[in-house]
C-alpha cells in the first residue's frame, strides 16, 4: 500500500503540473491571445477550448487523487480499483479494440481522402495509419521478448 501511496503522490504532482499548464494555456491563448498577440479569434477559441478541457480533466483527477491520499478507506478503494485484475483486463481489451477501430477508421479515411481529394489530403491519415501500425508492431515485439 505504501508503494501505491507513493505512486498516487507522484500522480497528484503530475496533475497539479497539468492544471497549472492548462491554466497558463487558457490565460495565454483565450484571455490574452487577442490583446497581446493579435491572435485570430477562431484560433483563440480552439486553443482555449483545448486547454479548458485539459483544465477540467486535470482538476477532476487532482481532486480525486488527493481525496484518496487523505483518507485510508478511499485509498484502499483506489488501490483495489487500480489493481483489480478484471478491471485491468477490461482496460487492456478495450484499449486494443479502440486502437483497432481507430486504425480501420484511419485506413478508410486515408483511402477516401486519397481517392476523392487527392494525395495531399490523404497524407496525414496515411502517416497516422502506418505510424500507429509501426508503433503497435514495435510494442508487440517488446512484450513478446519480455513475457
Amino acid at each position: 500500500m505504501e508503494e501505491f501511496k507513493k505512486k498516487l503522490k507522484k500522480k497528484s504532482a503530475l496533475w497539479l503540473l497539468v492544471l497549472i499548464v492548462s491554466l497558463a494555456g487558457i490565460g495565454l491563448f483565450f484571455v490574452f491571445g487577442g490583446l497581446l498577440f493579435g491572435m485570430d479569434p477562431e484560433l483563440r477559441r480552439s486553443f482555449g477550448g483545448m486547454f479548458g478541457f485539459l483544465f477540467i480533466l486535470s482538476l477532476g483527477y487532482y481532486v480525486t487523487t488527493n481525496a484518496a491520499l487523505g483518507n485510508e478507506k478511499k485509498l484502499r478503494e483506489a488501490y483495489i480499483r487500480s489493481t483489480d485484475e478484471r478491471n485491468l483486463n477490461i482496460e487492456a481489451r478495450s484499449s486494443n479494440v479502440t486502437l483497432n477501430i481507430v486504425m480501420v477508421c484511419l485506413f478508410i479515411g486515408f483511402l477516401f481522402l486519397t481517392l476523392f481529394s487527392g494525395r495531399e489530403a490523404g497524407t496525414i491519415p496515411g502517416i497516422a495509419f502506418y505510424g500507429i501500425w509501426l508503433i503497435k508492431s514495435v510494442v508487440k515485439s517488446y512484450y513478446n521478448k519480455k513475457m
Binding site: 488501490y79 483495489i80 480499483r81 483489480d84 485484475e85 478484471r86 478491471n87
Partner: peptide
Amino acid sequence: LADALCVTRQTIIS
C-alpha cells in the same frame, strides 16, 4: 469476499 481477495465486488459477481 472482495475485500479479502483485494478485488472489486463486481469481480466477485462476474
